[in-house]
């Protein structure tokens, strides 16, 4: 995973609550066995609608998605995160994320950050007023800024640290190999084993 320290880009104001994973990427795209190339599946159904926000010329090339609450509800499909990244998003901002989506984002290197509803409204207004406004997400300082507006965001310490360092979580866990061995040696005999 690449290190993420801070990012500056333009943003898409996505005024919608409860955006589910089946909209982020419909299930037909999940049949693929590759790790990238999912940009065509991102919001595939909604992108057929002319007025959908991602189709608007002024938001082309944006790399920060500012969404309503409960973003990423539903499926565990990490493809939802990959599709956002493949399309060009580095950061998603929302007042709240579904737990699995937020976890997947951290593992895949998409920065999912929480700011309160008022701050999201303010960011929407700023970006709609001037879509070329650079928005900066500073992971070290935990701030989002757009023009004069600056707000502190929330992200759990562990995910933040891993993103800043670009750490491979499996390697971190494998450092505990001896403790895993010890735990497994005491596993109750009746627990299922497939042989």
């Amino acid at each position: 995973m690449e290190k993420f320290i801070s990012h500056t880009g333009t943003a898409v104001p996505f005024r919608q609550s409860n955006v589910d994973t089946d909209q982020i990427i419909p299930s037909e795209y999940l049949k693929r066995i590759t790790r990238n190339g999912f940009e065509d599946g991102l919001f595939a159904a909604w992108r057929t609608e002319e007025n959908f926000v991602l189709n608007k010329e002024e938001y082309k090339g944006a790399s920060i998605l500012i969404a309503g609450p409960n973003f990423g509800i539903g499926s565990s499909r990490e493809h939802a995160v990959w599709a956002l990244q493949d399309y060009g998003f580095a950061v998603v901002i929302s007042p709240s994320f579904a737990d699995i989506f937020r976890g997947n984002a951290g593992n895949a290197g998409l920065v999912a950050i929480v700011v309160d509803h008022e701050a999201v409204e303010k960011l929407w207004d700023i970006v709609e007023d001037n879509p070329t406004t650079p928005v900066t997400v500073d992971l070290e300082a935990r701030t989002v800024s757009a023009g004069e507006f600056i707000v502190t965001f929330q992200i759990d310490d562990h995910t933040r640290a891993r993103l800043l360092e670009g750490q491979d979580e499996i390697a971190l866990t494998l450092a505990h190999a001896k403790e895993i061995d010890a735990y497994e040696s005491a596993r109750p005999s009746w627990r299922p084993l497939i042989s």
Partner: peptide, 22 residues
Amino acid sequence: FGIGTSQVEHVLATQTLPQAKP
């Protein structure tokens, strides 16, 4: 609980998962 593909890889490799307690 449900997990994403990165976590599937993590469990395959380590039979563990780092989890913040809800």
